[in-house]
């Protein structure tokens, strides 16, 4: 028995969003009486962290603390329209819509503040802690809770804003096939180090090195989490997930649902090192691109290349099971 070491890499260019027949997302922002700013969306946070990123975009644009932002994704029937969270589009589409809505709400907020302070709105700035102050005269200031109260009960104004981001539809030019399918592309490269047991055929992924260029990383901690959690999914696709030999021939035994589906556990996860490169996209919210789906992609061909480097077996069908490795080794011996 020999443990064969190998190293391989793979790169991926991944589109952010798609154009469908036109791909819009909308956002509405309004202030409550207490100085909270509600961002109403139909976009769903299914655990990917959309609410956090949206709150960051709204807070940054309004110039207020994140704690004052309330993201409401309660009802897709009655909320402003969103196409959904897919195609790694959430941060890009929804982020842009929220920024647009927050800008409009900010204009009203500053005008209400200007009327209260008896100054020109153009002379006002936000300090990020909850105050609107006269530029160069920080002592002349008003808190957003007082602005909200004045708007509601004194001036009779609604501090609100509307936002939409629309990726316009783009059909291919029949003659050339040319079209504009996405909004920007993120790029990544993964290097995988594996160990192949030439007696059992078992592949162990030892280490992954990931580099991602994703525009601006709006939330670096969540980006790192997505990169490494997604790479773990990639490892799972590459060497674990299979319903064979039971499916499709027979479903009487073996996995019949997701809880019986083999995926790597905590002891089978490779050590990972990840680097984030920031090259802001001109049309992204604060330069961000999408990073949702692409994170599972690069590890798989990188692992396949590492297996080839380790033992000379070129596998093109996932998962890279012990059986497929051993059959590959047998074929190499037969050819020799």
């Amino acid at each position: 028995m020999t443990l064969l070491h190998g190293r391989g890499f793979a790169s991926v260019n991944y589109p952010t969003g798609m154009n469908l027949g036109g791909d819009p997302s909308q956002a509405l922002v309004h202030a409550t009486t207490m100085g909270g700013f509600v961002v109403s969306l139909s976009s769903v946070d299914l655990g990917q962290g959309l609410k956090t990123v949206v709150a960051q975009c709204a807070a940054e644009t309004l110039g207020i603390p994140m704690e004052n932002v309330i993201v409401d994704t309660a009802d897709t029937d009655t909320g402003p329209h969103c196409m959904g969270t897919f195609a790694s589009r959430g941060t890009h589409r929804v982020g842009n819509a929220v920024i647009m809505a927050a800008r409009e709400a900010r204009e009203v907020m500053l005008q209400v503040a200007a009327d209260e302070l008896e100054v020109d709105a153009g002379d006002l700035e936000t300090d990020g802690t909850g105050y609107v102050a006269v530029k160069g005269a920080a002592a002349k200031r008003i808190h957003i809770s007082d602005i909200a109260l004045a708007a509601h009960f004194k001036q009779g104004k609604t501090i609100s804003g509307r936002g939409i981001f629309l990726k316009e539809r783009s059909y291919p030019v029949p003659e050339t096939g040319e079209m504009d399918p996405d909004s920007c592309q993120a790029h990544a490269c993964t290097v995988a180090e594996v160990e192949v047991d030439d007696e059992t055929g078992v592949v162990t992924v030892l280490r992954l090195y990931n580099t991602y260029e994703i525009g601006r990383a709006l939330n670096p901690a969540m980006v790192a989490q997505q990169v490494e959690g997604g790479a773990w999914m990639g490892v799972s696709h590459a060497i674990f997930e299979s319903t064979e030999p039971y499916y499709p021939a027979s479903r009487e035994h073996g996995p019949v649902d997701f809880s019986e589906y083999l995926m790597p556990g905590p002891g089978e996860s490779p050590e990972q090192t990840s680097v984030i490169l920031e090259r802001p996209a001109s049309n992204g919210p604060f330069g961000a691109k999408g990073i949702g789906e692409m994170t599972a992609n690069a590890p798989i061909p990188a692992i396949a290349n590492a297996i080839f480097d380790a033992c000379g077996v070129r596998l093109a069908t996932m998962p890279f099971t012990p059986e497929s490795v051993l059959r590959g080794l047998d074929a190499l011996r037969d050819a020799a």
Binding site: G47, Q225, E228, G229, M233, M263, P266, G267, S269, Q272
Partner: peptide, 19 residues
């Protein structure tokens, strides 16, 4: 730690930060 949480499935993190 790996053994203690081997009955707990996580589908987001890849487990490393949990351990």
């Amino acid at each position: 730690v790996n053994e203690a949480i081997s009955g707990n499935v996580c589908r987001c993190t890849g487990y490393a930060p949990i351990v």
